[in-house]
C-alpha cells in the first residue's frame, strides 16, 4: 500500500477515535452521575424542602431549589421573549436589509451571547447595590433574562431570516401593516423555531449558576413573592458538594441527577419541536 493511503487510514482511525471519545465522555458524564446518585436518591429529595438537620445529613430535599430554578427560568424566559420579539422584528422587517445598522445589532448580540454569565452576575450585583436592592427572585430573573436574551434573539433571528420575502410581500399587498405582518405572519411561520429557541433558553436559565450567585441569594424556603430570595438547583449542588458532611456531599449527586433529568427532558423536547430547524443553537 502506498504511503499516502497509510496516512489516510491512520487519520481515519484517529477521527473515529476522536468522535467516539466525545460520545463516550457524554456517556461517562451521565453514567457517573447516575451511579453516584442512585444510592442516595429518594422521593424526599424531590418532594421536600430542607428540614431541620438537612445540612447534617438528615431529612429533607431540594424542592426549594427545584421550584426556585423553575420560577427563575420561567420568569427570565418570558421577560427575554418580550424583549426579543420587538428586536427581531425590527432588524428583519423594519430596518433596511443588509444595512450597517442591522450588521451592528447582530454583532452586538453575538458579543452579548459571548459574555460570561459571571460578568452579568457581577454587573447585576453592582446595579443592585447602587439601587439598594437585596438578593431576590426578581433580581435573578432580570439577570438571567439578560443572559438568555442573546440566545433567543440569535435563534429567532435565524428563523425569521429564513422566511421568504414573497410571503411578507403577499401580506403587505393585502394592506397589512408591518406590525400586523410581524405579529400574524412572521410569528406563525417562526413558531417551531421559536419553541426550540424558548426551550434552549429555558434550559440555559435553569442550568446557569454564576449569574444567580450574587443576585438571587439562597434560602431553604420556597419563594412566595418575587422579592424573596430563592434557591436554585445548580447552587444547591454547589453548596452541598462544598459541605464537610459526607451525607450532604452525596446529596449533591442526587441533586445533580435531578438537574440532569430536567435538562435532558428539555433538550429532547427541543429536538422534537425543532423539525426542520435542526441547526444547533446554543
Amino acid at each position: 500500500m502506498d504511503k499516502r493511503k497509510i496516512e489516510e487510514s491512520i487519520f481515519k482511525i484517529l477521527m473515529r477515535v476522536a468522535t467516539l471519545s466525545i460520545v463516550i465522555s457524554l456517556a461517562v458524564i451521565l453514567i457517573s452521575i447516575i451511579y453516584k446518585a442512585i444510592p442516595v436518591m429518594n422521593w424526599g429529595m424531590i418532594s421536600q424542602t430542607p428540614q431541620g438537620g438537612f445540612y447534617l445529613g438528615e431529612n429533607g430535599g431540594v424542592l426549594n431549589a427545584i421550584l426556585g430554578s423553575l420560577y427563575l427560568a420561567t420568569g427570565a424566559t418570558i421577560l427575554a421573549l418580550m424583549l426579543s420579539f420587538p428586536i427581531v422584528f425590527y432588524i428583519n422587517i423594519y430596518a433596511k436589509k443588509g444595512s450597517w445598522f442591522v450588521h451592528t445589532v447582530r454583532l452586538c448580540f453575538d458579543i452579548l451571547w459571548g459574555i460570561p454569565s459571571i460578568v452579568y452576575g457581577a454587573f447585576g450585583f453592582s446595579i443592585m447595590i447602587l439601587l439598594g436592592m437585596r438578593t431576590s427572585l426578581f433580581a435573578g430573573i432580570i439577570v438571567i433574562a439578560l443572559v438568555i436574551l442573546p440566545i433567543i434573539v440569535r435563534a429567532l433571528d435565524e428563523v425569521v431570516r429564513m422566511i421568504p420575502q414573497g410571503l411578507l410581500d403577499a401580506s403587505y399587498s393585502l394592506g397589512a401593516t408591518k406590525t400586523q405582518t410581524s405579529v400574524k405572519i412572521v410569528t406563525r411561520q417562526a413558531l417551531p423555531g421559536l419553541i426550540t429557541a424558548i426551550l434552549i433558553a429555558f434550559g440555559r436559565g435553569i442550568g446557569d449558576a454564576a449569574a444567580v450567585l450574587f443576585t438571587t441569594g439562597y434560602t431553604d424556603n420556597v419563594p412566595t413573592s418575587l422579592f424573596d430570595s430563592a434557591a436554585t438547583l445548580p447552587l444547591a449542588i454547589f453548596f452541598q458538594l462544598g459541605s464537610p458532611v459526607e451525607a450532604v456531599q452525596n446529596r449533591a449527586f442526587a441533586s445533580a441527577l435531578i438537574l440532569t433529568i430536567i435538562i435532558l427532558s428539555i433538550s429532547i423536547l427541543a429536538r422534537y419541536f425543532s423539525g426542520k430547524y435542526n441547526k444547533f443553537k446554543v
Binding site: 458524564i29 438537574l259 435538562i263 435532558l264
Partner: peptide, 23 residues
C-alpha cells in the same frame, strides 16, 4: 451523533463540575 453533541453543549456547567469531582 449531532443530537449527542447538542446534549453535551446543553449540559449546565455545574454538571461538568460534578463530573470533574467524581472522575
Amino acid at each position: 451523533i449531532n443530537p449527542l453533541i447538542d446534549i453535551l453543549a446543553g449540559l449546565p456547567s455545574v454538571i461538568f463540575g460534578i463530573w470533574g469531582v467524581i472522575m
